[in-house]
């Protein structure tokens, strides 16, 4: 089992504020890992550090052994990390299918030699369209593929974002609150989908607020509070961890 993501001692400072303090985590191939924590704990900041949106002040991020600290987001994506956004960022003037097709950007890259072969670009694009449609079918969005992405209901928009990220064929899929704004049934359906994705060989790192969702589908959890990692382990361990209960779950009980 190889280590897809390894983040060591990540610290991110904004001015005088430490958004992340010395966070270390790793994700192995085929795992579903959850990152949880109260609002403002630094979960999205962690995602931004991993995907290159921010360059961590200190620490090192590596992907399958390659040091990717300080890389640009597009380089990191091209190398194998794909993400979704907490506040959905679909391309508003495109249809669902075209949104996914943008995700195919990395996959449809032609080598220098292929560039000069006539028809090669068309074949690449057509295959990509076929693949995009397959993915949309999987998520039950095939019928909607010619609708404008932002005209879909909220839950479906989140799914389109996931499909778009999957189109990159990432080595690690980072989902930022995939179930936010979904109702109970939709969340359950999403849980199943995430499971299926893993069975198809995807590795997934996700941020989520919905405790039941996380506890059901994740293999391991990392708990952030106030920018620092306070616990990690299986859902069972986290559930009974007194520090976590105090910092986070304590509010419910």
């Amino acid at each position: 089992m190889s280590e897809v993501l390894c983040a060591e001692n990540i610290t991110q400072r904004f001015g005088g504020l430490d958004a992340l303090k010395n966070v270390t985590m790793h994700v192995n191939e085929g795992e579903i890992i959850g990152v949880i924590g109260p609002n403002g704990a630094g979960k999205t900041t962690l995602f931004n550090c991993i995907t290159g949106m921010y360059c961590p002040t200190e620490g090192k991020v590596s992907m399958l052994g390659t040091d990717i600290t300080g890389w640009k987001p597009y380089e990191i994506t091209a190398h194998g990390f794909a993400r979704t956004f907490q506040n959905i960022r679909l391309f508003p003037k495109m249809t669902v299918l075209d949104n996914v097709m943008v995700g195919m950007h990395v996959q449809t890259k032609l080598s220098a030699r292929e560039w000069f072969l006539p028809g090669k670009a068309k074949i690449a694009m057509d295959t990509a369209i076929g693949r995009a449609e397959e993915l949309l079918k999987l998520f039950g969005l095939y019928e909607n593929r010619f609708e404008m992405a932002t005209s879909l209901p909220y839950g479906d928009q989140r799914k389109v974002e996931i499909v778009r990220a999957l189109a990159i064929q990432p080595k690690l899929l980072l989902l930022d609150e995939p179930a936010a704004g979904m109702n109970g049934a939709e969340t359950e359906e999403l849980g199943k989908l995430v499971h299926d994705l893993r069975n198809m060989g995807n590795t997934i790192l996700l941020i989520e607020h919905d405790m039941r969702f996380v506890m059901n589908i994740c293999d391991r959890l990392y708990v952030l509070n106030d920018g620092a990692l306070i616990a990690d382990g299986t859902p069972e361990e986290i559930r009974t961890n007194p520090i976590v209960i105090e910092a986070y779950l304590g509010k419910d009980e």
Partner: peptide, 16 residues
């Protein structure tokens, strides 16, 4: 077109 719609998201799609 992706850059026009959302530069940041375009970057996250691997677009230079």
């Amino acid at each position: 077109l992706a850059i026009r719609d959302d530069e940041l998201a375009a970057g996250a799609m691997g677009i230079h």
